[in-house]
Design a protein around this nucleic acid. Sequence first.
DNA 1: CTGAAAGCGCTTACAG
DNA 2: CTGAAAGCGCTTACAG
Lengths: 339, 339
Amino acid sequence: MKKKVTLKQIAKELDVSISTVSKSLRNSPEIGEETKEKVQAFARLYNYKPNNIALSLKNRKTKTIGVIIPEIVHHFFATVINGIEHYANSFGYHVMVCLSDESFDKEVINMEMLAGGSIDGFIMALSKETQQKKDFHHITEVISQGMPVVMFDRVTNDIFCDKVIIDDKTAAQDAVNFLVYKGMRKIGLLTTIDYVSVGKLRTDGYLQALRYNNMIVNEDLILKIEDMESCEQQIETYLMAHPDLDAVFAVNELFAVTAIKVANKMGKKVPEDFSVIGFTDGIISKYSTPSITTVSQDGLEMGKKAAKLLIDRLENDEEDEYYTTEVIETYLVERESTP
Amino acid sequence: MKKKVTLKQIAKELDVSISTVSKSLRNSPEIGEETKEKVQAFARLYNYKPNNIALSLKNRKTKTIGVIIPEIVHHFFATVINGIEHYANSFGYHVMVCLSDESFDKEVINMEMLAGGSIDGFIMALSKETQQKKDFHHITEVISQGMPVVMFDRVTNDIFCDKVIIDDKTAAQDAVNFLVYKGMRKIGLLTTIDYVSVGKLRTDGYLQALRYNNMIVNEDLILKIEDMESCEQQIETYLMAHPDLDAVFAVNELFAVTAIKVANKMGKKVPEDFSVIGFTDGIISKYSTPSITTVSQDGLEMGKKAAKLLIDRLENDEEDEYYTTEVIETYLVERESTP
DNA sequence: CTGAAAGCGCTTACAG
DNA sequence: CTGAAAGCGCTTACAG
């Protein structure tokens, strides 16, 4: 086992000072050609690589980004990380991933751990619990220490920082308008509990679209699903109670695919008897039979934009007090679950 | 903006030495009660947190694990990361994620970057290209520097290190045996190119099962799909060419769901006319209609085991030359795509 | 052209 | 009981 070689060892071996070795390897004009070549050859031979940790300590920057998300076994979040990783990597940054599991406490602990010098800045999506508690002290804390934070998807107005979002409300509105345009009159909504910011916004979009089209809003047609486990059960009860529904708009893939499954079970054919539109263009929508018409939500782009905002801020020392909110375009991906 | 406070600042403020502050905060018996309390109170007030980077440099360990995988927008790999992250976190370790995008060069670059002191050890699955080239110098290099590596899923016999795998061959065999048991006589195989280790093993299992059941092996019934993009096209041509096929065994979810889609298009009913078994119990198999019978592959468990092997090795200084290969149990999840 | 010194933020063996 | 010193691995302003 040949341990990693350090400047000190090279210096000793070559009988020069550490400074000389360091400068030679950075090709400083201060050092004589001959010495430089000798040192460089030796370093190459021993495969010298500077120690990142020492550099981080010296430069007071780690060139790594901390990412905190609610879960990773989730197509959208995985896609966002993919975008972050690729952008970050091309700028020499690394990515540290922490999962909050939708828990406030885990989110706080993870932030504090990472904020202890391990990273230069954060990219994050809030956990459900955090959105519910509306307690953002951990984020304010980190920002006040001068560490930039970029929020995406699940954001809050209570924090001033860069953000990357989609226009959830308009996207939902467009989806519902599309159903209306296709002749649907009775349109239901499968959504989450209100404290999930995006769920709330998508619900607002649904309501707005109905009003815009002069359709009656019937609160009974809005199903708020809290527990993912019993989602099929709840959707079944709901569809039974509203047999004359023409279509549903679901705020995520899971609700959409489950709605189709339940409809099938009840003998309704999709899209002939019943239409479904989902949200987030993931793997389920694509491979489901019938495949699902859905609102695209470009996670890759969101990840890249978030990484760009963060890195731009990190590389510009001037403290810019103006924060940006990037809105990523969405569009409807028409597939088989709508006529 | 209140910058993070350091020992030095506290020392100055309180007019004691840095050593005294450090010892007080670590509650050393060396220091007088009064001083300790004073320092601790002050530290609490200013929310002092030790700098991770400085600690890493001092202790020569970063308490972070480097994970290198081919892609992250992939249910199985995301699940493995999930397992790693949770186990690692409970032992105070962080996780750095790098993507190789199935590219040899990216895998090498990422390893070298991370090996430069950023992490204590690696958990990795080989990229396709690396498996094809059979060039593992970057891994040998890192191991010879004393940095432990744990490989999972896509491993190689050419490297001595801890490994976490499933018994791909036996699992495939079991799946095919199940089809035979259900009365299928003509069973096809949808697999990948041979250099992908797991694809090869699953192919071997398929062949073994046929032989075991005294069934004729027809090479024409084995479709090796290289390009994911044209996968539907290829499967269609294949199924057209073999209209009398009773079933196919697919080595991944994507091939399985696509086979069902194509079969449907050709007017075959699944599972009445045609059965499908997939590999990897992911989201597609679960939500597809019909849902897909599949070989489970417990990514969460694999991730946890891999993290355990790595952390055990990191925490035990004694250089253990005995490497473990953990084989995770698989089983068949029966669903709707088989009778 | 080369090297000693200071410093990034911390810990710890040792001296007083 | 407290503190100066050395050291983790590096860089760089400064002296010679």
